[in-house]
């Protein structure tokens, strides 16, 4: 589904990603871990197409197409979803209105008719239940005045609405209390099928108590320096990163 080869990317002339290789297949859950500043969020931003970052080398193929040549919205319409680490507030734009436009744009891209008002409302109700999102929030402006936990739940709600092929969740667990964490993680697990894939970027092992990854990667200084199964996350939690990164220190 996703094939990243030797990806290099920089921001303001500073190289952050220094040769990422990553293969994600349908039905898989990958976790990307690593210390602060190792490039985890940059990887998510580059995949989504954030223009702040410049790809200097390498390639990314998504569903057989060259992802890096596509505008942000086309990547989204193809089924790439990014759960933002810091969801943006958009004053005056209601969640319901925003989601209606997003869902219908993606449907239009696939050659489908827009949803009728009733169908859309039913979809909203059904999907907000997945993350136990208060249905009143959908009438409020996007993320405006939402608590930290509500913002993150709202990301998973949008993921549920848009039903992406590949979801990249950038530190969706950070800043969550244990209840919100459980709700977010359970939501992600419910949405997982054999046809889609999830890449979870996280700092802590605790999210992986709920979302069981097939592969765990350690990102350090812009490279994936180690990959293993789910037991790797537990080992990292116990022993930290030192045993892995010592070899890479300058």
């Amino acid at each position: 589904m996703l094939s990243v080869k030797n990806l290099h990317a920089s921001v303001e002339g500073k190289e952050i990603l220094r040769g990422i290789d990553l293969e994600v297949r349908a039905g898989e859950v990958h976790a990307i871990m690593g210390p602060n500043g190792s490039g985890k969020s940059t990887l998510a931003s580059v995949l989504a197409g954030n223009p702040k970052y410049t790809v200097t080398e390498g390639s990314v193929e998504f569903l057989g197409r060259d992802l890096l040549g596509l505008p942000v919205e086309e990547r989204a319409c193809m089924g790439l979803f990014l759960g933002f680490q810091y969801p943006v507030e958009i004053p005056g734009v209601t969640m319901a209105n925003f989601m209606k436009m997003a869902v219908n744009e993606q449907r239009r891209y696939r050659g489908e008719e827009p949803l009728k008002a009733g169908e859309f409302l039913r979809l909203m109700r059904e999907k907000s239940a997945v993350v136990e999102l208060d249905s009143k929030l959908t009438n409020r402006a996007v993320n405006e005045g939402f608590s930290g936990g509500e913002k993150k739940k709202n990301e998973i709600f949008q993921m549920a609405m848009l039903d992406p092929k590949l979801a990249v969740l950038d530190e969706t667990d950070s800043g969550l209390d244990i209840d919100a964490l459980r709700i977010v993680a359970t939501g992600v697990t419910k949405l997982h099928t054999d046809d889609n894939a999830t890449v979870v970027i996280t700092h802590y092992q605790r999210l992986l108590d709920y979302i069981v990854p097939d592969v765990v990667h350690v990102l350090y200084k812009g490279r994936i320096i180690y990959s293993g199964d789910k037991t790797l996350a537990q080992k990292l939690e116990r022993e930290g990163y030192d045993w892995l990164i010592n070899d890479y220190r300058e």
Binding site: A48, I90, F98, M101
Partner: peptide, 12 residues
Amino acid sequence: AILYMRQRGLTE
């Protein structure tokens, strides 16, 4: 905010 909306599928 524009990037956020485009990431959900809206055109610029």
